[in-house]
Amino acid sequence: MRVFPVYAPKLIVKHARIFLTGVIWVKDLGRLEFEKGRFLLPRKSLPKVKQAILELNELIEAQN
């Protein structure tokens, strides 16, 4: 598990694309899981977490 002390979308996306499957922890967002290079949306999450995951997945799609 990698810990990101700040929310840096480009760096987080780079990590997810390299490792494809895993878990990261982002300060103020908490634990985020990714599989096959995409972030998974938890069943229950705060609106800011949901927005961050959608933003990260959009960045991943834009890079493909």
Rank of each mutant, 00 (worst) to 15 (best):
M1A: 15
M1C: 15
M1D: 15
M1V: 15
M1H: 15
M1L: 06
R2M: 15
R2C: 15
R2S: 07
V3I: 02
F4S: 01
F4H: 02
F4D: 01
P5N: 12
P5Y: 15
V6R: 06
V6W: 12
V6Y: 13
Y7S: 00
Y7D: 01
Y7Q: 01
Y7V: 00
A8L: 11
P9W: 02
P9A: 07
P9D: 02
P9V: 03
P9F: 02
P9G: 04
K10E: 13
K10N: 12
K10T: 13
K10V: 13
L11P: 07
L11I: 07
I12L: 04
V13K: 01
V13P: 00
K14G: 09
K14R: 11
K14A: 14
K14Q: 13
H15R: 02
H15S: 03
A16T: 11
A16D: 00
A16I: 10
A16P: 01
R17Q: 13
R17C: 13
R17P: 01
I18S: 08
I18K: 12
I18Q: 12
F19R: 08
F19L: 11
F19H: 09
L20A: 12
L20N: 07
L20W: 10
T21P: 01
T21A: 10
G22K: 02
G22N: 02
G22A: 03
V23P: 03
V23H: 11
V23T: 12
V23D: 07
I24L: 07
I24V: 05
I24Q: 00
I24Y: 02
W25Y: 15
W25H: 06
V26Y: 01
V26R: 00
V26K: 00
K27L: 12
K27M: 14
K27C: 15
K27Q: 12
K27R: 04
D28C: 15
D28I: 05
L29D: 01
L29E: 01
L29H: 03
L29I: 09
L29T: 04
G30N: 02
G30V: 02
G30W: 02
G30C: 03
R31N: 04
R31E: 15
R31G: 02
L32Y: 02
L32V: 06
L32H: 01
L32T: 00
E33H: 13
E33K: 15
E33G: 11
F34K: 00
F34E: 00
F34N: 02
E35T: 10
E35P: 02
K36L: 09
K36N: 12
K36S: 11
K36V: 05
K36D: 11
G37A: 08
G37I: 05
R38T: 09
R38Q: 07
R38L: 12
R38I: 08
F39D: 06
F39V: 02
F39M: 04
F39S: 09
L40S: 05
L40W: 05
L40E: 04
L41P: 13
L41G: 05
L41K: 13
L41H: 09
L41S: 07
P42F: 09
P42D: 05
P42H: 13
P42Y: 08
P42S: 08
P42C: 10
P42N: 07
P42R: 11
R43E: 08
R43H: 06
R43T: 06
L46G: 12
L46Q: 13
L46Y: 13
L46D: 07
P47I: 10
K48D: 05
K48R: 09
K48I: 10
K48V: 06
K48Y: 05
V49M: 13
V49L: 12
V49G: 02
K50R: 13
K50Y: 07
Q51D: 08
Q51N: 09
A52P: 00
A52S: 06
A52H: 06
A52K: 11
I53M: 03
L54E: 07
L54R: 13
L54T: 11
L54I: 08
L54H: 14
L54N: 08
E55G: 04
E55R: 05
E55D: 07
E55W: 04
E55L: 07
N57H: 02
N57S: 02
E58Y: 12
E58N: 11
E58P: 00
E58C: 11
E58Q: 12
L59R: 05
L59P: 01
L59D: 04
L59Q: 06
L59W: 08
E61S: 10
E61R: 04
E61N: 15
E61L: 09
E61F: 08
A62M: 12
Q63E: 14
Q63I: 13
Q63V: 12
Q63S: 11
Q63P: 06
N64K: 10
N64L: 09
N64R: 07
